[in-house]
């Protein structure tokens, strides 16, 4: 009964992990790798559903046209502006609020629960909520500002050239700062408390404790949280789509790409836009990971 089984068991061992991974890898390839390849292929085609022509290969034609497309570059600027400002504000507010919540044990659980509310609200819902709050005639924000005497008549926040982007950033900050707070709180919790006691014994004032203990030890968590937020911000779609309905002033690269693909039915050009979006996001991620030296995969 203890007869030697053939060493084929090592062969089984080698393919076993791949058998377990296969369903997941196949599904993932179907929704990422294959469509990506198709998008790449289409980006070299003239393929417009509008003019009824058959698709034909045009090399880098779409990309060359894109380089001269003012609306595209405008969308790139919008996206970069939105991503940098909103992520910066969210990080600063996130750290501040997390430290505030962490400062006293009392009420920590309740505050954390409150933080989960904006995070759980669907983006479309928060866009609609804020749209209503920021309404030029009946919005509660204008009403309060008028009552307090800051302005004399309602401002069309989501429609005005200067204010639309500010409004979008404000809503994004409101909605996603809680996510930062939750991650930072978890990061703060893994910093050993006796380090602060040691610092106190060493006579380090509060600000020094923050800069020499909290920040360096929080950094790995913070860096990952910022990366997640940054990638989310660069591909932002729904907020601007609902809040200021595709206006040129606030269109992000994702909105611009979908406009070309769906609204104008220009599949080739839209695919080229999508490919550039992909390249830009990969570049942002690669540079960020290089610069911050965060390790996402632990061996």
């Amino acid at each position: 009964m203890m007869a030697e089984t053939a060493p084929q068991s090592s062969w089984v061992k080698r393919i076993e992990p791949w058998l377990l991974l296969a369903p997941m890898l196949i599904v993932l390839a179907t929704v990422t790798a294959w469509p990506l390849a198709r998008t790449a292929y289409l980006s070299f085609m003239h393929a417009s559903l509008d003019d009824g022509d058959l698709p034909r290969f045009i090399g880098f034609g779409n990309y060359l046209a894109l380089m001269k497309d003012g609306d595209w570059w405008h969308a790139v600027r919008n996206t970069a502006f939105f991503a940098v400002i909103s992520v910066t504000l969210e990080t600063l507010a996130g750290v501040a609020i997390a430290l505030l919540i962490d400062s006293q044990i009392k009420g920590r659980g309740a505050l954390r629960a409150v933080m989960l509310i904006p995070w759980a609200i669907p983006t479309v819902v928060s866009a609609q909520m804020w749209q209503w709050m920021l309404h030029d005639q009946y919005g509660v924000v204008n009403a309060l500002l008028i009552k307090l005497g800051f302005i004399s008549h309602g401002i069309a926040w989501t429609a005005g050239a200067g204010t639309a982007m500010a409004a979008i950033i404000a809503v994004d900050v409101w909605q996603t700062t809680p996510f930062m707070v939750l991650l930072i709180l978890a990061g703060l919790q893994i910093i050993p408390r006796d380090l602060y006691e040691a610092a106190k014994v060493d006579g380090a004032p509060g600000w020094a404790q923050f800069f020499y203990i909290t920040l360096p030890l929080l950094w790995p968590t913070l860096a990952v949280a910022i990366l997640f937020r940054l990638l989310d911000a660069v591909r932002m779609f729904d907020l601007a789509y609902v809040l200021s309905s595709k206006s040129r002033e606030t269109a992000t690269i994702s909105i611009y790409a979908r406009q070309q693909l769906v609204d104008f039915q220009d599949v080739g050009y839209g695919s080229a836009v999508a490919m550039l979006v992909f390249l830009m996001i990969s570049l942002v991620a690669a540079v960020y990971i290089q610069v911050t030296k965060i390790r996402l995969i632990s061996e």
Binding site: L28, T30, V31, T32, W34, P35, L36, A37, R38, T39, L42, L231, V234, R235, F237, I253, S254, A257, R258, L261, V262, V267, G270, S271, A274, M275, V277, F278, I281, A285
Partner: peptide
Amino acid sequence: GASMFPQIVVLSGLFGT
């Protein structure tokens, strides 16, 4: 990498699938 994937990128390809 897939978790960082921007959805807009696969829109046209996925539409075909």
